[in-house]
Protein backbone atom coordinates (compact mmCIF):
# COMPACT_ATOMS: atom_id res chain seq x y z
CA UNK A 1 0.00 0.00 0.00
CA UNK A 2 1.31 3.44 -0.86
CA UNK A 3 1.26 5.65 2.20
CA UNK A 4 0.32 9.28 2.67
CA UNK A 5 2.54 10.69 5.41
CA UNK A 6 0.85 13.30 7.62
CA UNK A 7 4.01 14.38 9.39
CA UNK A 8 7.29 15.09 7.61
CA UNK A 9 9.80 17.92 7.64
CA UNK A 10 12.50 19.48 5.57
CA UNK A 11 15.69 20.41 7.49
CA UNK A 12 17.85 21.90 8.79
CA UNK A 13 17.31 21.65 12.56
CA UNK A 14 19.69 23.09 15.16
CA UNK A 15 19.83 19.98 17.36
CA UNK A 16 19.96 17.13 14.87
CA UNK A 17 21.98 16.71 11.71
CA UNK A 18 20.08 15.14 8.83
CA UNK A 19 21.80 13.19 6.04
CA UNK A 20 20.26 15.59 3.58
CA UNK A 21 18.45 18.91 4.01
CA UNK A 22 17.24 19.21 0.41
CA UNK A 23 13.83 18.21 -0.91
CA UNK A 24 15.38 15.66 -3.29
CA UNK A 25 16.84 13.71 -0.41
CA UNK A 26 13.63 13.73 1.60
CA UNK A 27 11.62 12.65 -1.44
CA UNK A 28 14.04 9.81 -2.14
CA UNK A 29 14.01 8.65 1.46
CA UNK A 30 10.21 8.68 1.72
CA UNK A 31 9.67 6.96 -1.61
CA UNK A 32 12.18 4.25 -0.73
CA UNK A 33 9.96 3.37 2.24
CA UNK A 34 6.74 3.24 0.21
CA UNK A 35 5.49 6.74 1.01
CA UNK A 36 3.90 8.17 -2.10
CA UNK A 37 2.80 11.53 -0.69
CA UNK A 38 3.62 13.55 2.40
CA UNK A 39 2.71 16.71 4.25
CA UNK A 40 6.01 18.51 4.77
CA UNK A 41 6.92 21.55 6.88
CA UNK A 42 10.09 23.65 7.05
CA UNK A 43 12.02 22.80 10.22
CA UNK A 44 14.05 25.99 10.03
CA UNK A 45 10.87 28.06 10.42
CA UNK A 46 9.98 26.64 13.84
CA UNK A 47 12.05 29.04 15.93
CA UNK A 48 11.46 32.14 13.82
CA UNK A 49 9.15 34.78 15.24
CA UNK A 50 8.09 35.58 11.69
CA UNK A 51 8.49 32.39 9.63
CA UNK A 52 7.33 34.00 6.38
CA UNK A 53 10.69 34.16 4.59
CA UNK A 54 11.58 30.61 5.57
CA UNK A 55 8.16 29.48 4.36
CA UNK A 56 8.63 31.24 1.03
CA UNK A 57 12.00 29.60 0.43
CA UNK A 58 10.49 26.27 1.46
CA UNK A 59 7.59 26.63 -0.96
CA UNK A 60 10.07 27.29 -3.76
CA UNK A 61 12.12 24.25 -2.74
CA UNK A 62 9.10 21.96 -2.81
CA UNK A 63 7.87 23.28 -6.16
CA UNK A 64 9.38 20.47 -8.28
CA UNK A 65 7.96 17.79 -5.98
CA UNK A 66 4.17 17.77 -6.32
CA UNK A 67 3.85 14.69 -4.10
CA UNK A 68 5.34 16.68 -1.21
CA UNK A 69 2.47 18.84 0.04
CA UNK A 70 3.83 22.01 1.65
CA UNK A 71 2.59 22.82 5.14
CA UNK A 72 4.08 26.22 6.00
CA UNK A 73 4.70 27.18 9.60
CA UNK A 74 2.67 30.05 10.97
CA UNK A 75 3.36 31.84 14.24
CA UNK A 76 -0.07 32.77 15.61
CA UNK A 77 1.54 35.39 17.86
CA UNK A 78 2.98 37.23 14.88
CA UNK A 79 0.85 40.03 13.47
CA UNK A 80 0.92 38.61 9.94
CA UNK A 81 -0.54 35.20 10.87
CA UNK A 82 -4.02 35.71 9.44
CA UNK A 83 -2.66 37.35 6.28
CA UNK A 84 -0.22 34.49 5.78
CA UNK A 85 -2.89 31.85 6.21
CA UNK A 86 -5.10 33.57 3.64
CA UNK A 87 -2.17 33.99 1.27
CA UNK A 88 -1.09 30.36 1.56
CA UNK A 89 -4.65 29.22 0.87
CA UNK A 90 -4.64 31.32 -2.28
CA UNK A 91 -1.40 29.64 -3.38
CA UNK A 92 -2.84 26.15 -3.19
CA UNK A 93 -1.49 25.19 0.21
CA UNK A 94 -3.77 22.69 2.01
CA UNK A 95 -2.60 22.90 5.63
CA UNK A 96 -0.63 25.11 7.99
CA UNK A 97 1.44 24.05 10.98
CA UNK A 98 1.32 25.80 14.37
CA UNK A 99 3.77 24.97 17.16
CA UNK A 100 2.40 26.71 20.26
CA UNK A 101 4.99 25.25 22.65
CA UNK A 102 7.85 26.41 20.43
CA UNK A 103 6.17 29.74 19.87
CA UNK A 104 5.78 30.43 23.58
CA UNK A 105 2.03 30.02 23.52
CA UNK A 106 -0.58 28.05 25.35
CA UNK A 107 -2.45 25.80 22.94
CA UNK A 108 -5.66 27.65 23.73
CA UNK A 109 -4.22 31.17 23.67
CA UNK A 110 -6.49 33.77 22.00
CA UNK A 111 -4.13 34.05 19.01
CA UNK A 112 -4.32 30.25 18.54
CA UNK A 113 -8.11 30.58 18.38
CA UNK A 114 -7.77 33.35 15.82
CA UNK A 115 -5.36 31.25 13.72
CA UNK A 116 -7.71 28.26 13.72
CA UNK A 117 -10.63 30.49 12.90
CA UNK A 118 -8.73 31.85 9.90
CA UNK A 119 -7.58 28.38 8.84
CA UNK A 120 -11.16 27.18 8.91
CA UNK A 121 -12.36 30.19 6.94
CA UNK A 122 -9.59 29.65 4.38
CA UNK A 123 -10.29 25.93 4.03
CA UNK A 124 -6.92 24.87 5.46
CA UNK A 125 -6.25 21.97 7.80
CA UNK A 126 -4.65 23.27 11.01
CA UNK A 127 -1.79 21.07 12.23
CA UNK A 128 -0.98 21.75 15.90
CA UNK A 129 2.37 20.12 16.69
CA UNK A 130 2.59 18.30 20.03
CA UNK A 131 6.38 18.18 20.05
CA UNK A 132 9.32 17.98 17.67
CA UNK A 133 11.73 16.14 19.99
CA UNK A 134 11.54 13.92 23.04
CA UNK A 135 11.65 16.44 25.90
CA UNK A 136 14.14 14.26 27.78
CA UNK A 137 16.66 14.63 24.98
CA UNK A 138 16.38 18.36 24.40
CA UNK A 139 19.29 20.75 24.72
CA UNK A 140 19.67 21.68 28.35
CA UNK A 141 19.16 25.39 27.59
CA UNK A 142 16.30 24.83 25.15
CA UNK A 143 13.62 22.99 27.05
CA UNK A 144 10.35 23.11 25.16
CA UNK A 145 7.47 21.43 26.96
CA UNK A 146 5.21 19.06 25.11
CA UNK A 147 1.78 20.30 24.11
CA UNK A 148 -0.73 20.62 26.95
CA UNK A 149 -3.28 18.06 25.80
CA UNK A 150 -6.07 19.57 27.88
CA UNK A 151 -5.49 22.98 26.35
CA UNK A 152 -5.27 21.48 22.86
CA UNK A 153 -8.56 19.68 23.40
CA UNK A 154 -10.13 22.92 24.57
CA UNK A 155 -8.86 24.68 21.45
CA UNK A 156 -10.15 21.96 19.14
CA UNK A 157 -13.55 21.85 20.83
CA UNK A 158 -13.97 25.55 20.13
CA UNK A 159 -14.11 24.71 16.40
CA UNK A 160 -16.25 21.57 16.32
CA UNK A 161 -16.64 21.61 12.53
CA UNK A 162 -12.92 21.98 11.87
CA UNK A 163 -10.67 18.87 11.96
CA UNK A 164 -7.46 19.55 13.90
CA UNK A 165 -4.44 17.31 13.36
CA UNK A 166 -2.07 16.96 16.33
CA UNK A 167 1.12 15.03 15.40
CA UNK A 168 3.72 13.50 17.72
CA UNK A 169 1.56 12.68 20.72
CA UNK A 170 2.48 9.74 22.94
CA UNK A 171 -0.04 6.91 23.25
CA UNK A 172 -1.83 8.11 26.41
CA UNK A 173 -1.89 11.68 25.13
CA UNK A 174 -3.37 10.59 21.82
CA UNK A 175 -6.08 8.56 23.51
CA UNK A 176 -6.94 11.45 25.82
CA UNK A 177 -7.10 14.03 23.03
CA UNK A 178 -9.30 11.84 20.85
CA UNK A 179 -11.62 11.29 23.79
CA UNK A 180 -11.83 14.97 24.75
CA UNK A 181 -12.01 16.55 21.30
CA UNK A 182 -14.21 14.76 18.75
CA UNK A 183 -12.73 16.73 15.84
CA UNK A 184 -9.10 15.98 16.73
CA UNK A 185 -6.87 13.68 14.68
CA UNK A 186 -3.56 12.13 15.72
CA UNK A 187 -0.64 10.50 13.92
CA UNK A 188 1.39 7.43 14.91
CA UNK A 189 4.95 8.81 14.81
CA UNK A 190 5.38 8.99 18.61
CA UNK A 191 2.73 6.43 19.54
CA UNK A 192 4.42 3.21 20.60
CA UNK A 193 3.18 0.25 22.59
CA UNK A 194 3.53 -3.48 22.14
CA UNK A 195 1.76 -4.00 18.81
CA UNK A 196 1.32 -0.26 18.46
CA UNK A 197 -1.60 0.07 16.12
CA UNK A 198 -3.89 -2.75 17.28
CA UNK A 199 -3.31 -1.48 20.83
CA UNK A 200 -4.13 2.11 19.90
CA UNK A 201 -7.21 1.06 17.96
CA UNK A 202 -8.68 -0.54 21.08
CA UNK A 203 -9.06 2.99 22.42
CA UNK A 204 -9.12 5.16 19.31
CA UNK A 205 -11.36 5.16 16.24
CA UNK A 206 -9.46 4.28 13.07
CA UNK A 207 -10.98 7.17 11.15
CA UNK A 208 -9.13 9.63 13.42
CA UNK A 209 -5.66 8.07 13.29
CA UNK A 210 -3.18 8.97 10.53
CA UNK A 211 0.09 7.52 9.37
CA UNK A 212 2.94 9.89 10.21
CA UNK A 213 6.68 9.25 10.15
CA UNK A 214 8.11 12.49 11.58
CA UNK A 215 10.86 12.14 8.99
CA UNK A 216 13.68 13.02 8.93
CA UNK A 217 13.82 13.29 12.73
CA UNK A 218 13.00 9.59 13.10
CA UNK A 219 13.79 6.53 11.02
CA UNK A 220 10.92 6.28 8.54
CA UNK A 221 10.92 2.46 8.60
CA UNK A 222 9.94 2.52 12.28
CA UNK A 223 6.59 4.10 11.41
CA UNK A 224 6.13 2.02 8.27
CA UNK A 225 6.62 -1.21 10.23
CA UNK A 226 3.92 -0.16 12.71
CA UNK A 227 1.53 -0.40 9.75
CA UNK A 228 2.49 -3.99 8.99
CA UNK A 229 0.71 -5.64 11.89
CA UNK A 230 -1.64 -8.39 10.70
CA UNK A 231 -4.05 -7.44 13.49
CA UNK A 232 -5.18 -4.33 11.64
CA UNK A 233 -8.29 -4.71 9.46
CA UNK A 234 -7.57 -3.89 5.80
CA UNK A 235 -10.14 -1.10 5.78
CA UNK A 236 -8.57 0.47 8.87
CA UNK A 237 -5.13 0.12 7.37
CA UNK A 238 -6.21 1.91 4.21
CA UNK A 239 -7.87 4.66 6.21
CA UNK A 240 -4.88 5.23 8.46
CA UNK A 241 -2.36 4.83 5.66
CA UNK A 242 -3.91 7.39 3.33
CA UNK A 243 -7.71 7.66 3.28
CA UNK A 244 -8.15 9.72 6.44
CA UNK A 245 -5.63 12.30 5.31
CA UNK A 246 -7.12 12.46 1.82
CA UNK A 247 -10.48 13.21 3.42
CA UNK A 248 -8.99 15.93 5.61
CA UNK A 249 -7.41 17.63 2.62
CA UNK A 250 -10.53 17.54 0.48
CA UNK A 251 -11.85 21.06 -0.20
CA UNK A 252 -14.13 22.17 2.63
CA UNK A 253 -15.10 25.67 1.58
Amino acid sequence: MSLFDANAWLGPWPFQRFPEDAAEGLARRLQAEGIARALVSPADAVFLSDPREADEAFLRALGPFPFLYPVPVVNPACGNAADLIRRFAGEGVRAVRLLPSYQGLSADAPCMHRALEEAGRSGLLPVVQARVEDERAQHTLCRIPGLDVGAAASLARAFPELPVLVPCLYHPEAVRLLREAPNARVDIAYVERFRTLPTLLKEAPADRVLFGSHAPFLYVRAAVMKMQDPGIAPADLAAIGRGNLENLLAPRR
Binding site: E192, Y219, M225, K226, D229
Partner: peptide, 18 residues
Protein backbone atom coordinates in the same frame (compact mmCIF):
# COMPACT_ATOMS: atom_id res chain seq x y z
CA UNK B 1 12.59 -2.58 25.69
CA UNK B 2 9.51 -4.59 24.83
CA UNK B 3 6.65 -4.68 25.96
CA UNK B 4 6.85 -0.97 26.79
CA UNK B 5 7.95 -0.60 23.18
CA UNK B 6 7.18 -2.34 19.90
CA UNK B 7 9.34 -4.62 17.78
CA UNK B 8 8.21 -2.62 14.74
CA UNK B 9 9.51 0.72 15.90
CA UNK B 10 12.64 -0.67 17.50
CA UNK B 11 13.69 -2.97 14.66
CA UNK B 12 12.86 -0.36 12.05
CA UNK B 13 15.82 1.75 13.07
CA UNK B 14 18.25 -1.13 12.61
CA UNK B 15 16.74 -2.54 9.43
CA UNK B 16 16.75 0.83 7.66
CA UNK B 17 19.99 2.30 8.98
CA UNK B 18 22.44 3.18 6.25
Amino acid sequence: DIPVRDFAGQLGRILSAD
